[in-house]
Amino acid sequence: MATSQEPVIVGFLCNWCSYAGADSAGTGRMVQPTNVRIIRVPCSGRVNPRFILRAFQRGADGVLVSGCHPNDCHYSTGNFFARRRLLLLKRYLEYLGIEPARFETHWVSASEGQKWAEVVRSMAERVKALGPSPKLPSLL
């Protein structure tokens, strides 16, 4: 379905660091491609791998999860769990036929607007280069 359109990247951002980091990028007017749509979650540890699979099933061209830097989690440990889970998921996605570049995990703090803008730019570029995502068959 994503043939004639700009690729869509779904971003799951933790409320405390990365969502605020994306806000800082906005406040700083850091121009970015329009591909990312952000969904706010309390913590990167709240991101169930199911959400990411669902996004790919529905035709997302890329998925981005971003949380606080390791050791800086608002909830102490949430991003450690996220890191472990999502690392496994990335390999699983590759097994399912989703190119690894379509799924990324980043750590962006509330003050790192510049970094967030860079994450968006580079990911959008990579996903565009890959073309439309192979849609996962719905298992539901």
Partner: peptide, 19 residues
């Protein structure tokens, strides 16, 4: 931030209204 709510956001974004 229920599973239902977050999945609804994903579904809405990529679902029927999109094209």
């Amino acid at each position: 931030f229920t599973n239902d709510q977050l999945l609804a956001e994903v579904d809405e974004l990529l679902g029927a209204s999109r094209p």
